[in-house]
């Protein structure tokens, strides 16, 4: 076959994949991933992943939302077209709090969702792994590790042997 995308190993339980990931991490592979039907607790550490930076962006988005909401209301109510409503001051910051709060939440939530999709490079409707028949069970009840061919330490035979040694139920080479 052509150059493979990577080696795909199938495991039967969360416990198995947890220990397998630790070994893959310790074997110094860099371009690899685990695929599980649900997030397995502690797998971040087992894979040696750094913490996500998403919260910082969401915080910035939230502060932007506060500024945007308050500024918008201030400009519209106290600067551009001032209308006297119930003798309240033009810049009724107390009354502006509800909308400011909602705009803050909207900006933060949008950043959380679209930021997460962006970091994950989704949508990505076409991917080599999605062509594998066995891989369909990744969203059902099986756990997979895929070591990409692009990894410096990848070797079609040795990597497959290594994965078999981790107790995989099956190992296959996935086409590009």
């Amino acid at each position: 076959m052509n150059r493979p995308y990577g080696a795909l190993a199938e495991f039967k339980s969360a416990a198995e994949i947890f220990h397998a990931c630790e070994k893959v991490r310790d074997a110094q592979y860099r371009r690899w991933d685990a695929h599980t039907p649900f997030p397995v607790h502690g797998l971040d550490r087992a894979m040696g992943l750094p913490r996500s930076k998403l919260p910082i962006f969401v915080c910035i988005a939230g502060l932007t939302g506060v500024a945007a909401g308050m500024t918008m209301q201030w400009w519209m109510s106290a600067v551009d077209y001032r209308v006297i409503i119930a003798a309240k001051p033009f810049f009724s910051w107390q009354a502006f709090i509800p909308v400011t709060f909602e705009v803050m939440i909207l900006f933060s939530a949008a950043c959380a969702v679209f930021g997460m999709l962006f970091i994950n490079r989704l949508p990505q409707w076409h991917h080599s792994l999605l062509k594998s028949e066995r891989f369909r069970r990744a969203s059902d009840d099986r756990f997979f590790i895929c070591i990409e061919a692009q990894d410096a330490k990848f070797d079609p035979e040795q990597t497959v042997q290594f994965l078999k040694g981790l107790g995989a139920a099956s190992v296959e080479l996935v086409e590009e």
Binding site: P37, P39, L117, L122, Q124, W125, L129
Partner: peptide, 14 residues
């Protein structure tokens, strides 16, 4: 969206 159950994705997802 092409979700492939990747744990690197799950991390940010969570």
């Amino acid at each position: 969206l092409g979700w492939r159950s990747s744990h690197r994705h799950w991390q940010h997802y969570e």
